Amino acid sequence: MITLLDAMERKESAKRIRKLGYVPCSIYGSGVDRNMDIQIEDKEINRFLKSHSIGAKAKVKINASELPCVIKSIQYEPISSKPMHIEFYASSEDKLVKVKVPFKFKGKEQLFSNKLVLNILEDEIEIQGVLKDLPEFVEINVSLMKDGSVITMEDIALPEGIRLLSRKDEVVVRASEASQPTLPVQNEFVV
């Protein structure tokens, strides 16, 4: 089920909007007549972002219209990690959309029990598909990896109708033996 987010068109500066308890956002794309600056209540967007991130689908309700959107970018405050600005891409649900979505790695516990470390080299994938079919994340099962094995973008199974846009030969993860931790050498000082 796609989440519905209530928004209002923004007339004031982003700084002022944040002080009033809203997150400034913008909507652009083929699903809107013009680019719009909007605001969404702080509590509502934070609740949404607890389980969603870049690539997530949502319907943004402005006045009487509901726009099918995907989150294209999120800017966070460096210290508090609160969202400062969010960009939504609006499209009809049957149009092609390019988006980057995060990976979720399944089976890491099995690697750890085999004394292997998972080196994550890429944490997102660029894909293209119609908005209604886009996944919010791509899951990769790493439980069967051996020492030295890699998974590339080309190895990842994508849902039907979703096309890979990232470089096929790009390495996503590599498994390697966990090295034994070494204790720091204590320097002895003679006074």
Rank of each mutant, 00 (worst) to 15 (best):
K132H: 05
I27G: 03
L164K: 02
E41R: 14
L118G: 06
S166Y: 09
Q39N: 09
V171I: 15
S166D: 06
P68M: 09
I156V: 15
V23P: 07
M1W: 12
E139K: 14
V190M: 11
Y89W: 13
L96K: 10
C25L: 04
I151C: 00
K59G: 02
V150E: 15
T182D: 04
N35S: 15
E126Q: 09
E188M: 09
G129C: 07
H52G: 02
K168P: 12
P135L: 07
E44T: 10
Q75Y: 05
Q180H: 07
E93H: 09
G31M: 12
E154C: 00
Y22A: 05
V173Q: 12
E154N: 14
M145Y: 03
I151P: 03
E126I: 09
S81C: 11
K132D: 06
N114Y: 00
G29E: 10
E136A: 11
Q39I: 06
N187L: 15
Q180S: 07
S81P: 04
L67G: 03
N35E: 10
I62G: 14
L183D: 08
S73I: 01
I140C: 08
S91E: 02
K100I: 04
V60M: 09
H52F: 10
I86N: 06
Q39H: 05
H85W: 00
E136D: 12
E154S: 08
D169G: 11
K59M: 14
R16I: 07
M36H: 03
K11I: 13
G148C: 02
V99K: 08
L158S: 11
F137C: 01
V117I: 10
V142Q: 04
G55V: 03
Y76P: 03
S92L: 12
N141W: 08
L116R: 07
